[in-house]
Amino acid sequence: MWSYFARRVVIGVPTLWAIITVCFFLMRLTPGGPFDGEAPIPAEILVNLRARYHLDDPLWKQYVDYLISLLHGDFGPSFKYRDFTVTTLIAQGFPVSLQNGFAALVLAIVIGVPLGIVAALAQNTRRDYIVSAAAMTGIVIPNFVMGHVLILVFGVWLKDSFVHLPAGGWDDGAFANRILPVFCLALPYIAYLVRITRGSMIEAMRANYVRTARAKGLPFHTVVLRHALKSALVPVVTFLGPATAFLLTGSMVVETIFQIPGIGRYFVQGALNRDYTLVMGVTILSAALVIAMNLAVDLLYGLLDPKVRYER
């Protein structure tokens, strides 16, 4: 298994390089540049700026220089936040997004998977309909609506009650400030997990081996948890791999609504500002996470299904 792991990590390097390359040239091909503001910058200053950031070099040289600096662990200076390097920006924002994303992930699993099992076991009863309808609602309501609804309810309407929560802001990560954004992040994932778990659990409960387990006189919970659940979790894990990567790199919408200093907002702001290095930095980060999570998923399959083998 370790050789499989090592090989997958090695294969991840060219994948990452391809993503970097495509992203690098796509950014440069996009019209506009980092210094195009609403007020035009005088031509002489622009020349100096472009020279300072090596944007007057030929494109291939910029590319090679960028790769070399990456190999030294340097993501370069931000074009927009000029007092900061990209490394500093990510180092400041990523822990915040990581904490919120991880909390949301745990919340989504802890609520979504059991609810999905409950719905599956009560298939086509009222309990199932209520859970499924709630899950569908969670999927169709976009988080920019849900975020504002949460603020309206807990930040405004319940302002004078004991469940009052801050409408936004970070306050150095105070617990009360985290509740609404984490819940808002988790909600669509709870909903998806309910639906996926419900579907795969219904499938698993129909399997012949579950009938065998029932024919052995095992208590119902043993049949469900010991015999049915493990194979039902395969699609759940498949979904959770990329979902984890997206959750941990923060959400532009949620971080903007709740004014959270994470890195989610850099994806969109960086692209709009043509902040080449910042966009590259967050792209590389999330690409690396996606690659890592896909590997984690493949390793988890081995735990769920003994037929999975990692030799050669």
């Binding site: 399997a207 012949n208 081996y209 579950v210 009938r211 065998t212 387990a213 024919a215 010991r226 015999h227 493990k230 194979s231 769920l304 299904d305 003994p306 037929k307």
Partner: peptide, 16 residues
């Protein structure tokens, strides 16, 4: 009361 089922390929729990 015990039962032996038709399809031995799918009647045992694959992950146990």
């Amino acid at each position: 009361l015990t039962m032996v089922f038709q399809d031995p390929m799918t009647s045992l729990t694959p992950h146990m």
